[in-house]
Design a binder for these strands. Structure first.
Lengths: 159, 159
DNA sequence: CCGATTAGACAACATTGTTGTCCATCACAA
DNA sequence: TTGTGATGGACAACAATGTTGTCTAATCGG
């Protein structure tokens, strides 16, 4: 019947976007209107140990140039700090700033809230089932997102 | 536990990407190496009645300029045909070409095949359950994808 | 017939990505 | 110790999409 494969894909896209868009808007409401999910994810990678642009690029599966630009943006906006690595003059060590940690925490909370909302809509067991199935299908660590463009786009927050 | 809201979002992104990437690659294998999911979706919209650039823009929630460029690309590659509208000299009527229909059909088939693969991995009931839950959460018609950028990106098909 | 709306096109620019190139620095081995 | 190769970072040029703004031509409404 209507359960075409394309529809299944669109369903997942819709789910993802609905969460991410809501999170981005809420983040903007809380004063972080210059972060996109891309930045959030990059920040997470930095916090998780990607302390150089090249390393960040590897973890996010983008070129080091792209990663470097993301880092530059994050630095401009005060979410990370770059300091020369005393042990290796080639490297610039990247660290998440206080503001960076703050936005990460907010992000966590927002996503968790959204998940809770979903839980209330379909029930804890069903949500767990959903997560379990998705995990089985796409693997437990779907962190590998070489996602360009749209994650970073603006949402219609104003107007 | 580890089931954070962010993870849930990533899971869905992973699922979507895994389907779409596979489909894009397979489409390229079958000779349509110049179509991205973006084009496929735009083509669908045209086939569904969006017969002008402006209308396509409205349906895909992008500006008419962006839509016009997509149409131009599709025309260049032979997936749509533009003809002057006899009833309105301002408009160019857009129609899906034979090749366009062909790629749409291939796309359908590929997505269905992928869905079948998933079905084999987790079983028909569970897949149905997954679809049912997603539909409940995001609505039956998640077609509204104002998705920029990355859908249109190149995948690493060669090398 | 005239003003408002609409379709399409063009230009300028923002975002994010890619390749290619270059230089400085480090690691390692001869 | 020194030479060679790998690595980090930066710059430039370009591709793909998107946005706004502006303009012209055609249609529509009164």
């Amino acid at each position: 019947m209507s359960r075409s494969g394309a529809n299944l894909a669109l369903l997942m896209l819709g789910g993802f976007r609905s969460l991410v868009d809501a999170a981005t808007i809420e983040l903007a409401n809380r004063g972080y209107d210059d972060v996109r999910p891309l930045h959030d994810f990059a920040l997470r990678a930095v916090a998780a140990g990607a302390d150089s642009a090249s390393e960040l690029g590897r973890r996010m599966s983008v070129t080091k140039q792209a990663a470097a630009r993301t880092v530059a943006t994050l630095e401009e906006r005060g979410y990370v700090v770059r300091t020369p690595d005393p042990a290796d003059a080639r490297r610039m060590r990247i660290e998440v700033s206080d503001r960076g940690f703050a936005v990460l925490q907010e992000g966590e909370g927002i996503f968790d809230d959204l998940r809770t909302q979903w839980q209330q809509r379909i029930g804890p067991e069903k949500l767990a089932e959903l997560e379990s199935l998705l995990t089985e299908l796409v693997g437990p660590q779907p962190v590998r997102f070489d996602t360009p463009g749209w994650l970073a786009r603006d949402l219609g927050e104003s107007t």
